[in-house]
C-alpha cells in the first residue's frame, strides 16, 4: 500500500505518464549518446530521463525499425532541431576552425620546438 502511494506521489511530481519504454537496443544507445537532450541542457539523450529524451529514444527505435541508417536519423533530427542536437559537429564553414585550430596550434608548437633543438 505504502509503495502504491509513493509511486503515485512520484507520478504526480514527474507530472507525466511515461509509457513503457522497452529495453532499448544497443543501436539506440549508441545514437542517443550522440544527441543533446535539448531541455536538460548539458545531458545527452542517452543519459536523460526527461519526457523529451524518452520520446526521442522511442522515435529513434521506430526509425531504426523503418530501416533508416544512422546518417538518415541524424539528418532527420537536425532538420527538426538544428545542428545543436548533435554532439559531433560536422565539418562545414562554421566549424572548420573548431576542428583545424587545435591542429594548427600543434604544428606551430612543433615548429617552435624544432627551432630550439639541435641535432649536434
Amino acid at each position: 500500500m505504502k509503495i502504491k502511494i509513493l509511486v503515485l506521489t512520484i507520478f504526480y511530481l514527474i507530472g507525466s505518464f511515461n509509457l513503457s519504454y522497452a529495453a532499448n537496443s544497443e543501436k539506440v544507445d549508441q545514437i542517443s549518446k550522440n544527441l543533446r537532450c535539448l531541455i536538460c541542457q548539458g545531458q545527452s539523450v542517452y543519459d536523460s530521463q526527461s519526457d523529451f529524451a524518452l520520446s526521442m529514444k522511442i522515435l529513434i527505435q521506430s526509425k531504426i525499425d523503418e530501416g533508416k541508417n544512422d546518417e538518415q536519423i541524424y539528418d532527420f533530427l537536425k532538420s527538426k532541431y538544428g545542428e545543436w542536437i548533435v554532439y559531433d559537429p560536422e565539418i562545414n564553414k562554421n566549424t572548420v576552425l573548431l576542428w583545424v585550430l587545435p591542429l594548427i596550434l600543434f604544428v606551430f608548437g612543433s615548429i617552435l620546438i624544432l627551432r630550439k633543438v639541435s641535432i649536434k
Binding site: 543533446r36 545527452s44 545542428e83 542536437i85 554532439y87 559531433d88 562554421n94 566549424t95 587545435p102
Partner: peptide, 15 residues
Amino acid sequence: NNDKISVGPPFYHKL
C-alpha cells in the same frame, strides 16, 4: 554567426 552548435564527447575523442 547566430548559429548554435554542440561540441560533445565525439569531438574530443576524435582530436
